[in-house]
Design a protein around this nucleic acid. Structure first.
Lengths: 339, 339
DNA sequence: CTGAAAGCGCTTACAG
DNA sequence: CTGAAAGCGCTTACAG
């Protein structure tokens, strides 16, 4: 009842047992007689004792900490990912050490080193890429790494994404079915696998109908990038009749820009986003968009990570989950369109 | 270059010095000759050695981990807070163990216990209240706690908020100056000090002009709550000509609801929010709102926490930071209004 | 400046 | 089931 940290030794003394006995009572799976358990629990209760997780980690070699690196928190997609990821991990008895990444690579590398210093049991990178140096460091430290919503070409590390190429294709098909023929793409950052894949699926689907995109402009996943791209498109020789935007976050900026600066044309231009963040359903936007199945992506990420941690094996896996087109009112709905 | 964790002992052997020497080289402020430093750094480099932070924590009694509890991540205010808080802490050499809180109190208590188990050096609760049991546990463990954007009446723990009573008053004055006389308030959750304070300032300012709010409805900080409240207001005997909404997140829901269900009336109703999240500036909303100075609130939170950690003293402080009304177009601008 | 040693709070074989 | 002891990887007096 007084102050400062209580240790297992103090509990042992009060309970009249050895320190090992106390430890056993608090170690799941260790054996102790009911009598010992009772005495220890009582003493612990009275003293306010709880095992020091850090000391435990030192002996067991498992910290039950997962390092999580996130970027783009201004994009509503990521808070949601963060929340679900963190909840899923907590449910399995893990805790999350969080790091904000800016886009510069050196930053990521040093952040990753710091994460490793905490003896994390695993690392999740949300929309952040990994240098091969760091991938090597993680392998050496035997710490599994999972990329979330981003792929890595070298296949050195596991990755969970939605089916982005397919998604890009679905959007193109929808727009084509709607009778559009001047379809532009404001793409996600071309330095990201995700952005490239969506653009590729989209372009391929158009090509299969003998069409080409009106233009493809990199929006860098930012509002500013999307706004600039919108102006470029609208002031070009031939304005688009539809724009596929690389994610919802940019799509909102595109819609805002059209409304504010091209009010007459705005209504006639179909907009389709990617992600289906909660805001896409808000009446102000009512955005038609390709839903990324966050739930399942998170579940897969966590289960894969757990398997690697518990299995000790770090064979990289690449997992793609198909997403569905959510049709709202921001883009013309093709006659007879279903699903 | 092979595998698994490298220890200071291995570095010592390779460098031909004692293990203590290695430790000193990696301990800021410890003394070692340049020659030793060079040898150790070289060996460490070759082996890929980095100190085990957990082991260090065990001996020093400082983990350099801060526990952070957040709720309401769907409200754009919090991702921003999280990002800034985390960056500010990282800059000072601390790392963040994050926990998502649902609204139930038991949940918070168990989460807090888990945080304490990690021997965190301090705890920040963002928009989450603390039971007095837990406050006691933290005091006993000598772990400073700071409430962010929420106050605690008992004054047992430090709190950083914006000047909410004053903020509520400023909003009322603005609306009054705009000539409104049927002003309703969709309040933040009445179980939160923040929500109560804003409502109080607002009501007091109206009262000082001999007016009363048309109605005060608790919106619970949720979109659903705000939507329901909007319908209640609009279908009442006397619809409002202005609504002060307890935070921006709910204000967007109110505007969406008005647009979708009361399009004729919508334009004539002034809406004012609270927070000034980035989205408030987006053209779709253009929300007039009382800005919470996140920057300064975060700085104060972190500096107060640091002072308490380093000073060892845990005298609770209550800090209020004044916010400014950001005038956009969602509410009628009084003639001749400046600042 | 430097090494040997104690200690941080645990877990876990090892004997009994 | 239970206790004594070693060990996890560090830091930090203590002597020299």
């Amino acid at each position: 009842m007084s102050n400062a940290k209580v240790t297992s030794l103090e509990v042992a003394q009060r309970a009249g047992v050895s320190q090992s006995a106390v430890s056993r009572v608090f170690t799941p799976g260790a054996s102790a007689s009911q009598k010992t358990i009772d005495k220890v629990r009582k003493a612990a209760q009275e003293l306010g004792y709880r095992p020091n997780v850090l000391a435990r980690s030192l002996t067991t070699g498992k910290s039950r900490i997962i390092g999580l690196v996130v970027a783009y928190l201004e994009n509503q997609f990521y808070p949601e990912v963060l929340e679900r990821l963190s909840n899923a991990l907590q449910r399995r008895g893990y805790h999350v050490l969080i790091f904000m990444a800016s886009q510069t690579a050196e930053n990521i590398d040093s952040v990753m080193q710091e994460i490793l210093d905490y003896q994390v049991d695993g690392i999740i990178l949300a929309s952040v890429a990994l240098s091969s140096d760091l991938a090597a460091a993680c392998r050496m430290a035997q710490v599994p790494v999972i990329l979330f919503n981003r792929g890595q070409d070298d296949g050195e590390v596991s990755a969970v994404t939605s089916a982005n190429v397919l998604g890009g294709r679905k959007v193109a098909d929808f727009l084509l079915a709607g009778g559009h023929d001047r379809i532009a793409h404001i793409a996600g950052w071309s330095g990201s696998s995700t952005g490239r894949d969506r653009a590729r699926g989209f372009t391929e689907a158009l090509a299969s109908k003998g069409l080409a995109p009106l233009a493809i402009i990199d929006g860098k996943y930012t509002r500013a990038g999307a706004q600039t791209a919108t102006h470029t498109l609208m002031q070009g020789p031939m304005p688009p009749d539809a724009i596929f935007v690389g994610n919802d976050h940019m799509a909102f900026a595109v819609m805002d820009t059209l409304m504010a600066h091209y009010p007459d044309a705005a209504h006639g231009i179909s907009i389709v986003g990617y992600d289906d963040v909660p805001m896409a359903a808000w009446q102000a936007y009512n955005l038609t968009t390709l839903r990324q199945p966050v739930n399942r992506m998170v579940e897969k990420t966590v289960s894969t990570l757990m398997a690697q941690i518990e299995g000790g094996t770090i064979a990289p896996e690449t997992i793609e989950i198909e997403g569905e087109l959510i049709v709202r009112t921001s883009a013309r709905i093709p006659k007879g369109w279903k699903k």
